[in-house]
């Protein structure tokens, strides 16, 4: 995977897809049922979907030109992962309490 713009953009969207799926399965039982019927278990479906989203978006975003602001892309990815992780933890904490 040498098309760096594609990899970074795909990773950012994939992370937010994981966050949305994590919360949506708890809020909307119908969504959880769809995922379960798709792959037998909702976690398997989330794994498969996240892989599919990443590779499809990689093909969609790929460009032979390297981005000039590569560090901005990397910071956006790092912030997405940290904030996304905090949102997931906060949601499950709130859900438990």
């Amino acid at each position: 995977m040498k098309n760096i713009r594609g990899v970074l953009s795909a990773a950012i969207v994939t992370i937010w897809t994981i966050v949305v799926m994590a919360i949506a399965t708890e809020i909307y039982p119908a969504f959880k049922a769809i995922l379960t019927s798709f792959a037998g278990q909702h976690w398997t479906a989330k794994s498969t979907i996240s892989l599919a989203v990443f590779f499809v978006l990689y093909l969609f975003f790929r460009s032979k030109e390297k981005p000039r602001n590569i560090l901005s892309y990397a910071v956006a990815l790092a912030l997405s992962a940290v904030i996304g992780g905090a949102v997931i933890f906060g949601f499950y904490l709130w859900h438990f309490l």
């Binding site: 760096i4 990899v7 992370i15 996240s50 990397a74 996304g84 992780g85």
Partner: peptide, 17 residues
């Protein structure tokens, strides 16, 4: 189980860079 899903993608980004 959800944050774990992010790690291989971050690893792929690092390797790609």
């Amino acid at each position: 189980e959800h944050i774990f899903l992010m790690i291989p993608f971050l690893a792929l980004v690092s390797w790609s860079l």
